[in-house]
């Protein structure tokens, strides 16, 4: 696809993670360059969502979860003992599989929640942030006249873009997406995919997807996970046309998974 910029924004070294005695990730190494879209593909249960949730340390919110290894955001370690997950999550936003606007909050309140709960009260600052986040998420034109309407009153696809706007409003350099379109219809999916293309200018995106066409369409780098291991990673075009590993080939050609 495009020529990749060279700076690494995320570096993952020998990442192991799991729950109790179960090891879900068995030593993952991956580099993510700035302004790149990285697609994580692989069959269900291969650990790609767990991997994603390690990056913003949401993984450890589950009882019995553990992480080992190293994750670097630029040159700052994310897993060190002194690292505050709350601080890390302001740098790494996340969009979930199911659209999950905050219940009982208007569209405006949803997008401004991250800023407001950080103590930013000034109305003009919040209004600007909400407007630019909604524009970035390509939702502004549809909701600008009903910012006071409840977030949950929007359609599924709009709700998902609202969640993207909510994540963008605190201006994280990285956004993680965990199968963001799996609950959406084809048209909404296409809108989100377009959006990802545009967002690349501003943020780095790591996206989990079950849909290989989607990975091929939107990503620069593709990483293929299988049974907790990273089998192969490389340029998306290379992974889908000339995979080096026979398991990758079998998966991307649809012979299993």
């Amino acid at each position: 696809m495009t020529v990749l910029p060279q700076t690494d924004i995320l570096t993952v070294n020998q990442l192991k993670a799991g729950f109790g005695k179960v090891e879900v990730l068995k030593g993952i190494n991956l580099k993510v360059r700035e302004h790149e879209v990285v697609a994580l593909i692989g069959p269900s249960g291969c650990g790609k969502s767990t991997f994603l949730r390690c990056l913003n340390r949401l993984h450890e919110e589950t009882e019995g979860a553990w992480i080992e290894g190293e994750i670097l955001l630029r040159d700052k370690s994310l897993l060190g003992r002194g690292q505050d997950p709350v601080e890390i999550r302001s740098q790494i936003g996340m969009v979930f599989q199911k659209p999950n606007p905050f219940p009982g909050m208007s569209i405006f309140e949803n997008v401004s929640a991250g800023l407001k709960l950080r103590g930013i009260r000034k109305k003009s600052v919040l209004e600007n942030a909400v407007e630019s986040a909604l524009k970035q998420a390509a939702l502004w034109d549809e909701v600008k006249d009903k910012l006071k309407a409840p977030g949950t009153s929007l359609s599924g696809g709009q709700q998902q873009r609202l969640c993207i706007a909510r994540a963008l409003a605190i201006r994280p350099p990285i956004v993680l997406m965990d199968e963001p379109t799996s609950a959406l219809d084809p048209i909404s999916t296409a809108k989100i995919e377009e959006l990802i293309h545009v967002l690349k200018k501003d943020v780095t995106i790591v996206i989990v997807t079950h849909n290989m066409q989607q990975a091929a369409r939107i990503s620069d780098q593709t990483a293929f996970f299988l049974l907790g291991e990273l089998v192969e990673t490389g340029l998306t075009t290379q992974i889908f046309t000339t995979p080096k590993d026979s398991r990758t080939e079998a998966y991307v050609t649809g012979r299993f998974g």
Partner: peptide, 10 residues
């Protein structure tokens, strides 16, 4: 997942 969305916002 609503709780997680809150946590993920930092």
């Amino acid at each position: 997942h609503v709780r997680e969305a809150g946590l993920a916002l930092g």
